[in-house]
Simulated scan of single mutants.
Amino acid sequence: MHFKELMKSRYAVREYFENKVDRTLLKEVVNAGRLAPSAANRQPWQFVVVDDDVLLAKLKDSYQREWFGKVPNLIIIYGNHEESWKRPYDNKDHCDIDVAIAVDHMTLMATELGLGTCWVCHFDKDIINSVIENKKGFEPIAILTIGYPVDNTAPIKKRKNLDEVLSFNGL
């Protein structure tokens, strides 16, 4: 699939078939995140794939939406602010930016593989931390639900016109 088609095909999926995604495909998706660029190549991330039904049931309360409790697989993306690059002029932390780039790479790879995803950032990290043991210094930054979408038709996306968001040489 060409990149323009891939971008247009990706959308937030909130209804999946029950069947699990094969771990080989999940590894391909995570590998796309691993290959993403990061500031100063610090790669301040970790990825935890969850495909165990007991763990998924425990995690469903971290984001209380009916559809979230039915996802067949998810990926928790962790970031480490101690490992991430900080801009020296103002100490701007790039951890969340690096993680966002990795997640975007994973959503596009999943789309390429015929999978659907939904990027979730509004969740209770205490519930995540009580269910999944993580490394010292890492915090959950995003959850990527992943599976086979029930409806594989990308909706029409409402986007601002290019002239509303683009300027040259200043705002």
Rank of each mutant, 00 (worst) to 15 (best):
Glu15Ala: 12
Phe47Arg: 01
Tyr89Ile: 08
Val71Gln: 01
Pro88Trp: 03
Arg34His: 11
Asp98Met: 04
Leu59Asp: 03
Ile77Ala: 01
Trp67Ser: 04
Tyr16Asn: 01
Arg23Phe: 13
Arg23Asp: 15
Asp98Val: 07
Asn19Ser: 14
Trp85Ala: 02
Ala100Ser: 15
Gly69Tyr: 08
Lys58Phe: 09
Leu59Pro: 05
Asp90Arg: 09
Asn73Lys: 03
Val49Gln: 04
Asn80Thr: 08
Ile101Leu: 09
Asp51Met: 08
Pro44Gln: 04
Asp104Arg: 14
Ala32Lys: 02
Ala36His: 11
Lys92Leu: 11
Asn91Lys: 13
Tyr89Gly: 10
Val54Asn: 13
Asp93Ile: 13
Asp51Gln: 15
Ala12Glu: 06
Trp45Asn: 00
Asp90Ile: 11
Pro37Cys: 05
Glu28Met: 13
Ile77Asp: 01
Arg34Gly: 06
Gln43Ile: 13
Ile101Asp: 01
Phe68Thr: 03
Tyr78Gln: 04
Gly79Glu: 04
Leu59Gly: 00
Tyr89Ala: 12
Glu28Ser: 13
Ala100His: 04
Pro72Leu: 07
His105Asn: 12
Val54Lys: 14
Glu18Tyr: 14
Arg87His: 10
Ile75Glu: 00
Lys27Glu: 08
Lys86Ala: 03
Asp52Ala: 07
Ile76Gln: 00
Val99Ser: 01
Trp67Tyr: 12
Val29Glu: 00
Tyr89Ser: 14
Asp96Val: 12
Leu35Tyr: 13
Tyr11Ala: 04
Asn19Arg: 15
Val21Leu: 07
Ala32Gly: 09
Cys95Glu: 01
Val99Ala: 03
Asp93Trp: 11
Leu59Ala: 03
Val50Gln: 02
Asn91Gly: 09
Arg14Trp: 11
Lys20Ile: 07
Lys92Pro: 02
Ala40Lys: 15
Val30Pro: 00
Val50Ile: 15
Gln64Thr: 12
Ile75Val: 15
Pro44Asn: 05
Pro37Asn: 11
Asp53Glu: 15
Phe17Arg: 15
Glu28Tyr: 09
Tyr89Asn: 12
Asp53Gly: 05
Cys95His: 02
Ala102Asn: 07
Ala32Met: 06
Glu82Lys: 12
Asn80Lys: 05
Val54Ser: 12
His81Met: 14
Ala40Gly: 06
Asn80Tyr: 06
Val49Phe: 10
Asp53Met: 08
Arg65His: 13
Asn19Ala: 10
Arg14Cys: 08
Ala12Asp: 09
Ser38Glu: 02
Gln43Trp: 06
Asp96Arg: 13
Pro72Asn: 05
Asn41Val: 08
Asp96Thr: 15
Leu59Glu: 04
Trp45Lys: 01
Asn91Pro: 04
His105Cys: 05
Ala57Val: 07
Leu55Trp: 06
Leu59Val: 03
Asp52Glu: 11
Val48Ser: 04
Asp90Tyr: 11
Val71Asn: 01
Lys70Val: 04
Gln46Arg: 15
Asn91Ser: 11
Arg42His: 09
Trp85Leu: 03
Arg23Gly: 10
Ile77Gly: 00
Trp45Pro: 00
Val29Leu: 02
Ile77Glu: 01
Phe47Lys: 00
Glu83Tyr: 14
Val49Asn: 09
Pro44Arg: 01
Glu82Pro: 03
Asn31Gln: 15
Val30Ile: 13
Val21Ser: 01
Cys95Ser: 04
Asp61Met: 12
Leu25Cys: 06
Ala12Ile: 12
Val48Leu: 08
Gln64Cys: 06
